[in-house]
Computed example of a mutant assay.
Amino acid sequence: MSSGTKRQREMRKALNQLLPRVPLLDAEAILEVAQSRHLRHLPPSIALWQATTARVRHAHTEYEALLEEGYDRDSARFFVIDAMNDILTDWGSGRRVDPNDAGLDAGEIG
């Protein structure tokens, strides 16, 4: 039985290193986005980080609600950074979202 392509194996390994305590549901969602066509041009670690920040922002913060309330994207992102970093900490990540780096959602790349 094959364990996937080389890139898929690299992604899983990188995900385990980046987020050792990520819940399975979130891990699967992150991997699905990170392996999508529009992120293939990126190294696995960067694609994973983009997919991770998008997943945390959209699924685990009030980001969508802030947008619905009329906040612009940059303002909404500013207000959810602490919550995002709390989730990343809970998942065992040593990396944090930098408030000075607006970043892009995985869906906005390419």
Rank of each mutant, 00 (worst) to 15 (best):
G94W: 11
R73S: 02
L66H: 10
R96C: 09
V33K: 12
S75N: 08
A47F: 05
V97G: 10
G92T: 03
T52M: 03
A51W: 00
G92W: 08
L25M: 14
L15Y: 12
L88D: 03
L25S: 15
R95T: 08
A47S: 12
R96D: 07
G103L: 03
I109F: 13
V22F: 03
N85H: 03
Y71P: 07
R73P: 04
D86T: 09
Q17S: 08
E108D: 12
A51N: 09
F79D: 10
A54Y: 05
A106I: 00
W91D: 14
L25G: 15
L66F: 10
L18W: 07
K13C: 05
L48K: 04
S45M: 13
T89F: 06
V22W: 07
R9F: 04
H38A: 08
A54T: 12
L66V: 04
L18A: 14
A47H: 00
G110Y: 13
M11K: 03
R40M: 12
L39E: 01
P99Q: 00
L67D: 03
G107E: 07
G103V: 04
A102F: 12
P23Q: 08
E28R: 10
T53N: 15
E108N: 02
Y63P: 08
P99I: 00
P43R: 09
G107N: 08
R77E: 06
A27Y: 01
G103S: 00
S3T: 14
E69W: 02
G4V: 14
A65N: 07
I87H: 14
P99E: 05
E62I: 03
D105W: 05
R96V: 15
G70R: 03
L39H: 02
L42F: 13
D26I: 06
L25V: 13
T52G: 01
R57C: 00
E69G: 04
R21L: 12
E62Y: 05
L48C: 05
G107F: 02
W91T: 06
I30W: 05
D105M: 07
L19H: 10
A54F: 04
D82R: 15
P43L: 02
K6H: 09
K13N: 04
E64D: 15
V80T: 14
L18E: 09
L48M: 05
H38M: 04
A83M: 15
L24C: 11
L88Y: 05
R55S: 12
L24H: 11
N100W: 13
D86I: 00
F79C: 05
S36L: 00
V80D: 11
